[in-house]
Design a protein around this nucleic acid. Structure first.
Length: 418
RNA sequence: GCCCCCAUAGUCUAGCGGCCUAGGACGCCGGCCUUUCAAGCCGGAGAUCACGGGUUCGAAUCCCGUUGGGGGUACCA
């Protein structure tokens, strides 16, 4: 039987780290087995539904490249079927009315058992499970009734979800038993915690997928990082491409202890992925990101600046601070330029005649200036950098000058020397 | 309260009875490189494998207890 999995979020807000991790593991499992990955929005609790949350979730998944193999479905769309099933259960006596609701009759003794792929064998006393409401008094199904029904209807083979659903599993198994549905295989993933050990939430900083996107992270890096939260390929591999993860992913290597989200490691990993990109793709992604956040800069210039920054940035968000000087005037701190007159004038004279106006030639010329003034390169170049970029930290000076152009460079040098 | 789950360095993890004087990665510290910052390279500190009992010739690995953390206990998902 072909592997079919589903990611089933409730539309109560943005897709956050814990949610994506669950979605990712489902997607990886499906891809690894050439199976299908479905998305089902669990919207049976209409009172908690947040407007546009479903679209938001789907969009976040798309950004990460976790595209479902079918149009996402909404649980409530199958309400007629849920109600019909409840009625049938009523007729066989497996369910009964209670107030306005309908409850499933559950056994009071014995145990219900399943072999969880990540937890191992789990046994629950039937006595601890009370007759569960399957249809609310207003006719809407409850989650624990609708979910197993829908799983069965979609022929879900593996239910991969957060450990908060562990205690729902016996209930859903009981429902499945009552309707004679096939059992899927269950895998309950450990939670993702914040730095304080509490469940990850807003106050731990960026946790929604959208935030990572606007913070300049690469989807592949986020994916790589998330995959490592609870799963490992082997004893030493950290950096992996999407396809390497898909190839190596198995549920057997998913751990059962909760993980803490570490922004610093994500950041590092993002830098690694950024540096590994082809220059053209990097430029493409960078330009798209900058347009997204409203950075006003010529796309062509952005592209040509890629070689200057690719080795330096760990997120795209750092780009403006590094390269703002390429796109507009600078205001060097005069205090940092005292006594710099001779160097700046020397640089100006040298740059006036450099041919061609390219980094290697510029470097030769400026080093000669430093030599002539008997200054160490470190000493001589820093004021020039400040005059041209307005900052003590910048991309490579010579490449920056080339990109800035002769006229602009001379003008900035003159202004600073004055 | 009751039920369940988890427990290796600050963090993510490897480990599934002897290969472990516990491996990798982030972070941290130092050095090299160097036009700044990064990157890169080299080196270092950091874990009595939560604690206490067992089992075994031998335990991070198996069992029991304790502690800590988490989840559940809804006509929420």
């Amino acid at each position: 039987m072909a592997v079919t999995v589903r990611f089933a979020p409730s539309p109560t807000g943005f897709l956050h780290v814990g949610g994506v991790r669950t979605a990712l593991f489902n997607w990886l499992f499906a891809r690894h087995h050439s199976g299908r990955f479905l998305v089902r929005i669990e919207n049976t609790d209409t009172s908690r539904e947040v407007h546009a949350a479903a679209e938001q979730i789907v969009r976040s998944l798309a950004w990460l490249g976790l595209e479902p193999d079918e149009e996402p479905t909404f649980q409530l769309d199958r309400m007629a079927h849920h109600q019909e099933t409840a009625r049938a259960l009523l007729e066989t006596g497996d369910a009964y009315h209670d107030g306005g609701a309908i409850r499933l009759r559950t056994p009071s003794d014995g145990v219900i058992v399943w072999d969880d792929v990540v937890r191992g064998r789990v046994e629950v006393d039937n006595g601890t499970i009370e007759d569960l409401v399957i249809l609310r008094s207003d006719g809407r199904p409850t989650y624990n009734f609708a979910a197993p029904l829908d799983d069965a209807a979609s022929a879900i083979t593996h239910v991969i979800r957060g450990e908060d659903h562990l205690s729902n599993t016996p209930k859903q198994l009981l429902v499945l038993q009552a309707i004679g549905g096939d059992r899927p295989i269950y895998a309950h993933l450990p939670n993702v915690h914040g730095p304080d050990g509490q469940k990850l939430s807003k106050r731990h900083g960026a946790v929604s997928v959208e935030e990572f996107r606007s913070a300049g992270y690469l989807a592949d890096a986020v994916l790589n990082y998330l995959a490592l939260l609870g799963w490992s390929l082997d004893e030493k591999t950290t950096v992996m491409s999407r396809s390497e993860i898909v190839r190596g992913f198995t549920l057997e290597r998913v751990g059962s202890s909760p993980a803490t989200f570490d922004h610093a490691k994500l950041r590092w990993l993002n830098g690694v992925h950024l540096r590994g990109q082809a220059q053209a793709a990097y430029g493409e992604a960078l330009a798209a990101y900058l347009a997204d956040i409203g950075f006003d800069g010529d796309a062509k210039l952005i592209r040509s600046s890629v070689p200057l920054v690719q080795e330096k940035l760990s997120t795209f968000a750092e780009y403006p601070d590094y390269c703002r000087f390429l796109f507009g005037p600078v205001e060097p701190d005069p205090a940092a330029l005292v006594d710099a007159g001779p160097v700046l004038r020397g640089a100006r004279d040298a740059l006036r005649s450099v041919e061609p106006f390219a980094a290697p030639e510029i470097e030769t010329a400026l080093r000669a200036v430093a030599d002539g003034l008997e200054l160490k390169p470190r000493k001589a170049l820093q004021p020039i950098r400040i005059a041209l970029t307005g900052s003590k930290v910048s991309p490579g000076l010579f490449e920056s000058i080339e990109l800035l152009g002769r006229d602009e460079s001379l003008a900035r040098l003159a202004a600073a020397a004055a």
